[in-house]
Write a protein that binds this DNA or RNA. Sequence first.
RNA 1: GCGGGUGUGGCGGAAUUGGCAGACGCACUUGGUUUAGGUCCAAGCGCCUUUGGGCGUGGGGGUUCAAGUCCCUCCACCCGCACCA
Length: 852
Amino acid sequence: MSRLTPSEIEPKWQAAWAEAGVFTATRDGNRPKYYVLEMFPYPSGRIHMGHVRNYTMGDVIARYKIGTGHNVLHPMGWDAFGMPAENAAMAIGGHPKTWTYDNIATMREQMKPLGLSIDWSREFATCDPEYYGQQQSIFLDFMEKGLVYRKDAMVNWDPVDMTVLANEQVIDGRGWRSDAPVERRKLTQWFFKISDFAEDLLEALDGLDRWPEKVRTMQANWIGRSRGLQIAFELATPFEGVERIEVYTTRPDTLMGAGFVAIAPDHPLAEALEAGNPEIAAFCADCRRMGVSETDAEKAEKTGIDTGLRVKHPVRPECGLPVWIANFIIMDHGTGAIFGCPAHDQRDLDFSRKYGLPVVNAFTTLNDAAPVADKALVPIKTEKVRWIDHFAGLDVATGEEAIEATIAFAEKRGWGRRKTQLRLRDWGLSRQRYWGCPIPVVHCDICGIVPEKRENLPVRLPDDVSFGRPGNPLDRHPTWRDTPCPSCGKPARRETDTMDTFVDSSWYFVRFTAPRAKTPTRDEDARYWMNVDQYIGGIEHAILHLLYSRFFARAMRMCGHLPASATEPFDALFTQGMVTHEIYATRDGKGRRIYHLPSDVRRDEARARLKATGEPVEVIASAKMSKSKKNVVDPEDIIAAYGADTARWFVLSDSPPERDVEWTAAGVDAAFKHLNRVWRLAAAAKAADDAEGPDDAMLRRSMHKTIRGVTVDIEAFAFNAAVAKLYAFTNTVAKADAGTGAKREALRIMAQLMAPMTPHLSEEIWHILGGEGLIARAAWPVADPQMLVEDRVTMPIQINGKRKTEISVPRDMAREDVEKLALASDVVVKALAGGRPRKLIVVPGRIVNVVT
RNA sequence: GCGGGUGUGGCGGAAUUGGCAGACGCACUUGGUUUAGGUCCAAGCGCCUUUGGGCGUGGGGGUUCAAGUCCCUCCACCCGCACCA
């Protein structure tokens, strides 16, 4: 009997698919389209198991949808701009472009053996000038529509590397590479007006009912719309022309408990006060020093300083509230000023106790609150409260009513107005880096900022740059930087900032619909293929990438690049879990861990030892595969040893796709053994022979149940459950005393049901069992509803809800007959002891419950 | 602190949505075949037990003839956000 040899059959079928063009997508009005997409990879160098899991899931969906008659688009590309390429260029020399394209070539060659149903004819990298040139043209369109602007913004500046650092590159206030103290610098930068769309981006989340709740919540929190009241607190005596302080609150109902007003150290009023008061100046300077590092700010104690100014309480003007400058007030939030309500806010209470400020109850709850000690009384939103001073015509209200009543009252009296506040800030897209999409504008001393002419796009990155010196190479590249003004023709300078790489990934999915078009999109293709029906990727992109893509869809629609029908980029989103693996470590002389590759460790029974020396190895709990922990399993090695089908089958088995799956050698062996077992069963059923067997009917019923079960599971992304049903069906086929005809039929169906997961093995089985054409193109089997119902059913009999026995009855037996049979069974007779049941529940075909 | 999620055998996890808890896989035990085997085949495998049964889906309570599933409450862990005004 021949053995399963993946190294032979896998390339064979991959070639067959390529030759038949099975996965090449073209528009076809006769079939429903289905666009399935996995988040495209960054070409870091090699693919890892996370990629394998991600793309396998997408592939299952894609192949299943082909089977169900859909015209499937399943493309792949490369998110190819970004810092690692520049870092590599600095560390090992060479050019980011070479490094990137080499990595792409390597990873493409690693991906192809996985047998993914990808339309490779649509492949592109975001660093291709053909792609980023179109992106530049979109940028100019956004400019024309007023969706782009420039403003000053703070950046982390590394004075040694002469570069801007992302927040995650700042470690303990120092640059991650240079270790130099990071400075805060003001730079004029480019921004996208994402805030223009904030309301729509928030409200449309409700319609994304096929997105995980978690992601929708995270986006909603990120946009952070709050409704509240902006109050003008009048200064008792104006200070240098300032007459009032604007304060924003989401809890206007607590206004009567206001004990103080506090402003941020960066507040204009604070800055004005600094000039005449050295103590205040010292305090503010102190706060700013803390402000550099956010982790410091978190730990810092709440401190403040009295300005000596007083404001009037809008409802009780006779009350003067002190104005403080406090370190925990942030200029970016609201108006940069708050009123403190110590009785009902813990932070304000702590502050008030520290500085001896008054604590005033705003309201008591209906059951009369205890006096405030060290714990603020925070009424629940739905709780009825009674104002101590009922100024709004209401004296008892729930939190929401109280808030509304206060806002209405404030607007009527004119000291406040309703305000909706957003947390979402505009998207700063400037990056002072080389390896990104150049921003296509020119700075002219005469004309100002001038967009590059369309016919000059793409503004290509120059190749002749060096990374030996710190700073942005574009800045010191005179022939590239110096360019005539597109408007007046006089000498001018190119913008040397490039775009955030999130821009590249905000519209790539649209570009896949017409990757070679001379315009960013082509209407008939975008109209046909958009939206992406199913998007699959990691939860780490829950906020930025997905939010930016949603913004781009709207902005591109505004510019005519997307049809009105393309409402959202991704109709359905699935976030898959990671592939984890144990970590192996030994200790060095100082007790520090030294990590070891799984391939260097031998595990037998309970112990693990180094293969080379036999030294015992500490096994640390499973974690995300990472180079530094050396717990990476290389997909290439697994494919070489077991084949792609085994790797695919394994990553789909056992764990639900949204959870992490632990990579284990035993699990991979089990997957491989199972595929071999299916292969042997198929080989045994190969001989044509029409003999029937006693289990033929049972096998067919089981087959139809499996068809239905696997179909439902794939639709529901329950791949682990689908795999389990296929295991169970394999057991049934193996044990059935059935004729070869029935077994052949069963195995052909099994091959089809497995094809989305193990496409090569399935083709091979399909082929030897006489299937027509390629299984990749075969119509997905449909379960016969009549075969799903058994003639006889086993009904458990419960006494008082506890299962005691069972009866086997014809499926459609009349209720009365079931009752009689149940009552006649030994245990029931015994339990009733001659009496009658108090109640008798019969759920036909399901269960009998006798209540005594 | 706010928000989201998870909790089921030794382990990963099923459960047609209120109807036989533990499917399927791993690990383990026993037996068999071939044995060079880490192959293959068969059987067993929640816990307790006086072998009659009792208990059992994080704890407690409730609804119901019936609860892993619904409600209340508490606990633990994971993830996200956060001096958010």
